[in-house]
Amino acid sequence: MRPNIRTEADRSPEFAHWITSLPGAEKIRECMHCGLCSASCPLFAYMDYSPRQLMYLGREGFRDDVLGSFTIWLCTSCYQCTVECPRQIPVTEIMYALKRRAIEEKTYPKRLAIPVLAREFRRMVYDRGRISESWLVMKLMLKTGIHRMFGMVGLGWNLLRTGRFSLRRETIRHRGDLARMLEAVGHDSEVVP
């Protein structure tokens, strides 16, 4: 984390405009800092910025703090903050948008497995239409450090023993359809051109 001093030069008006233009996110301007988003967040204790702080930094345009923050990767999308917020700020959906922009701009912390998981997940869905969990986990381990594999031997055995580990590749019949459909949507960029 950077020293806790901010100057005007750290602010990006573009970023402030972008974040408050997300669907429903104009309500960040009405935040009264009650802190219910943070208090209700089950991951709060592990975050560098609390959800409340992150929303505030975002609306004031502190782009690098927000996009480099660990907080957006800790969010599991449990939506507790969203239902608690008395100003109806869609905090979880904003977290999703921040993840998308951080992946696009590659500003996430190094060696973090979460964006790798998201990318491998996307590739598998694109190719086959369905996720085969065993394959996904193995790919994730290959990409984020083979050493993880050793700690997983017991877990793998337990899944094998109970018939829950499968090397079958799940696939839809109309694989080509899916690719054609996703191409037709076009690429969605979070970054303002």
Partner: peptide, 19 residues
């Protein structure tokens, strides 16, 4: 087909909805 779960929404919103 796969619903996209939380992972696809973290990458591309329009594609996630299409999926």
């Amino acid at each position: 087909n796969c619903c996209g779960a939380t992972s696809y929404m973290s990458i591309d919103k329009a594609k996630a909805y299409a999926l």
